[in-house]
Design a protein around this nucleic acid. Sequence first.
RNA 1: GCGAAAGUGGCGGAAUUGGCAGACGCGCCAGACUUAGGAUCUGGUACCGCAAGGUGUGGGGGUUCGAGUCCCCCCUUUCGCACCA
Length: 854
Amino acid sequence: MDEKYFPEQIETKWQQRWNEAGVFQAKDDQREKFYCLEMLPYPSGFLHMGHVRNYAIGDALAWFKRLQGFNVLHPIGWDSFGQPAEQAAIKRGVNPREWTENNIVHMRGQLQRLGISYDWTREIAAHRPDYYKWDQWFFLKMLERGLAYKKVSQVNWCPKENTVLSNEQSSGGICWRCSTPVEKRDLEQWFLRITEYAEQLVADMKQIENGWPEKVLKRQSDWVGRSEGAFLDFAVKDSGDSDRKIRVFTTRIDTIYGATAIVLSAEHPLLPELLKDSALKTDVEAFAQKVKNEKAIRTDLAADEEKEGLNTGVLAINPFSGETLPVWVANYVLIEYGTGAVMSVPAHDERDFEFAQKYSLPIRQVIAPVTHDQVRAEPVATIAGDSSAEMKHSFTDYGVLINSGEWGGKPSDVAIAEMTAYAREKGFGEGAVTYRIRDWGVSRQRFWGAPVPVIYCDKCGMVPVPYDQLPVVLPQTADFTGTGESPLAGVPEFVNTTCPNCDGPARRETDTMDTFVDSSWYFFRYLDPRNENAAFDKSMAQYWTPVDQYIGGDSHAVMHLIYTRFWNKFMRDIGMVSFDEPVKRLLTQGMVTNRVEGTDEWKAMSKSLGNGIDPDEMIKAFGADATRMFVLFAAPVENELRWSDTGIEGSVRFLRRVYTLVWRWHERLTYRDAAPDAAEFSDGARALRRKTHQTIAKLTSDIDHLHLNTSVAALMELFNQLMEFNADPATASSADVFAVREALEALVVMLTPFAPHVAEEMWESLGHSGGLLAESPRWPKADPELARREELEIPVQVNGKLRSRVIASPEVSEEDLKASALADEKIRVLIDGHEVVKVIVVPRRLVNIVIKSA
RNA sequence: GCGAAAGUGGCGGAAUUGGCAGACGCGCCAGACUUAGGAUCUGGUACCGCAAGGUGUGGGGGUUCGAGUCCCCCCUUUCGCACCA
């Protein structure tokens, strides 16, 4: 140990030692396991502060569990397929593979300089064939089970350049390069049937609701969009023969007597047939086309535009009331949801209300508000009773049915159940659940991804690549024109192949997979990263998974985190894992922001805003330990973290002061006397020991709950108390030395999750040269007896205001506490001459004396 | 527009879940040591007031012996959704 704290020296020294000893390698042993996982990074080339925060949080937990004796798995890898590599190829002519590999080398170095305790022997990278082979394997398994399929779907198409555009490239409905209006074009694309699992994705949330942030589950549940209601068939009234029906979906069957129209989406498949005999055929078709065109243009525009519609002249019959209703086409009915047709109930739906007002459709109230109490009576006043034309708003709450034939007088919930059953009985409807989630489109017309393992043969049609021919390896390079068509299509050696079925000439699929496929199951590969015969061994999964703690940004709240749940359920169904949910606890950490120069705005660090902070520079200037500790101390993990240069200096200052204190004591502490008798401890020493054990108790619980900022604060408090104790190593009694050793050792061990390098250094110099902190369970145990306060300062209030304090022992009886409060001099002055109405005594907490004011 | 969450010193944030508001750190002020200090150390630091004392957790009301914490209304900010029938 040097006299002065030189972070750089200490950090390289311990990084080397850890590496040589292989202490972070997870072993397959019998201990209780802890799987600590951080979202794997995209190898963009540079670590940013968001990464540092993510990994510092995970590492604190990993260290904590390791020091507690758990068998900890803490791995890292690279989400290395994806656009930026291909962009670099297009712009600068670099090979995506080289670009990616170089970035990995650089970022790995950065992570190592940060000293994150990863098991590097398990490192994986999505772009390597030994990894994406298993993407392809899973794809084929899904294909076998009918969960992967091909269907025509719309893509953005620039008619001038003849290319496919991504949503981003066609923002605003025009081509990003030539400003030509974008068309929607139909293209065959691969999909994974996530909708098959929609119900489970919602239902299984119960299993994780205690470990996942509520807001993430909320977003996922919105994303799945489960909605209970009913399908209802409205018979089309036409000249005679046919028994055509229009099926609608509704969640409010109880409002059906208020339906005054049926409204179809412009893309409704039945529309052409319905219009066959209509006099308005041409007009309606023109209108429908116009709506379709408008929809094609608005890709990401807000959808609160004017509602427009047109009466088709067709009539339909309300199956409950027998009433005849006009059938309209309108722009506000979505083909993607439900059945693409709705019954329009203006009185009880905002959109229908707006539409009805514009086109003077009748508005008929059929639900009356329930008046629970007087205060809630208000809605009645705003809605007319029988003359519904007076309604100024739609009334969308549940209530009691009126004007609804035999159902009148029934509450909504009862009516919904009964009417649904009735519809089913009579054969014109049934209860139904719809979901908003749609199947996962995984086709990408890109080079830098896992090729979809499928072959097309003129004779045999679509043929899956046989399992023993996996992986389908990406060619070394391709022609990166940036046209939006799959670059693989331009590589004949790749495309041309033979049919596995008939040996005839055949072509390979040239689409690659969405990178979210790679990240859906990667953390299972860490368990068994070199396995050549399976994605992972089942027994490994049995031991290590589910993940105990997953940490990452909340930008992945829906996409990645819902795909990975889906993937797990699929793996369960094919017998690879035995549980429903892959992640027990999830933390979505807050963003790291910095002031944008010249403004008052705090925004996520980025190159383009020029407000980035380079982790390497911080490590150089302050050390990895201080950088990590600051990031953990500055804010609660889930909050936004505003960068502060002076804040990080505070962290170095703290580490340096601890270091200096250890330096002062280390020679005295390396030899141990026998433990002194309890009676030998001075008041100060007992207070120090109390603080030590209180701090141990606090950290043991705080770190587990990832309250890392308060953990660091508690360590600072313990340190402050050590300074206050102010013993001199040269003259201290052996009891004092004992107390200091206990406090200092606890402080050093508990500092490890936040500043592991300097902690190891100090641990060694305190006489533990035999073994690394990293190697054995050294987390201290709190002794509740020592942590207990010997005396309490009990606040005394008069009428709820703090007036005095009395000293009492923790065991004091309520009676005695009351008596000493009433006897207190300051209190006596205040209550003198007043009637004491009541005295509230909260044991160990406070006394409140209620008096009548004179 | 709809929905959710959150508002505590100059700043980041504590507060055992209804019981001493402001832990810890940053910043700031004063002092010490220094040729010097943007190093280090010591002390101070919610607001008003010389003080006694009073006020104080976005604003207003309420429940309670007692409210940052619970309830109602309002304001502001942030996030999510965007015609989901």
